[in-house]
């Protein structure tokens, strides 16, 4: 709908915002229901998420496994910490590439914005060096693959 913003806030936080045309309830559900997550949280074209565990309750497990269908894959695990249905999610996650990345604490808020939703994703990392490394790594899954693809293109 409208552009993404991605910026650092202080030493340990990265904030991403994005607007969606749908109301907060739907955007929230798309972030917590496995059947919906598996349709969009995929990274570069060609990747799928064959395993998606999402138990949206405090202490509930998160496990996403991605595959490019050609033997390459990686996964993410996490736990839900706090949920306010349709408004706010706090969870912790770490990626396995295959070594685990430091724990990333994420707060996602969904605010009504006209007929749509303003989503704000605030990630808090253990230290500034991790933020640098994460920005350099590409904090979203699929980056390794997309860079490999980019290498082939340039």
């Amino acid at each position: 709908m409208t552009g993404l913003t991605l910026k650092r806030d202080g030493d340990r936080q990265v904030v991403v915002t994005r607007r969606f045309a749908a109301r907060p309830e739907l955007v929230y559900r798309a972030h917590t229901e496995p059947a919906l997550l598996q349709k969009w949280l995929l990274g570069p074209e060609g990747w799928t998420m064959p395993v998606c565990i999402s138990e949206p309750r405090p202490g509930g497990a998160i496990r996403f496994e991605w595959s490019d269908g050609q033997g390459n894959g990686f996964y993410l695990t996490g736990e839900y910490l706090e949920l306010e249905p349709f408004r706010r999610i706090r969870h912790v996650e770490r990626m396995f590439l295959p070594d685990p990345t430091p724990d990333n604490h994420v707060e996602t808020t969904f605010e009504a914005d006209g007929g749509g939703t303003l989503m704000t994703l605030r990630m808090t990392l253990p230290d500034a060096a991790t933020v640098e490394a994460m920005l350099a790594t590409g904090m979203e899954h699929g980056m390794e693959a997309s860079y490999k693809r980019l290498e082939g293109v340039v």
Partner: peptide, 15 residues
């Protein structure tokens, strides 16, 4: 890398 990260996020969110 950051520019490409933005592209991946945008790909996800467009979906």
């Amino acid at each position: 890398w950051i520019a490409d990260l933005r592209r991946v996020l945008e790909t996800n969110y467009s979906r």
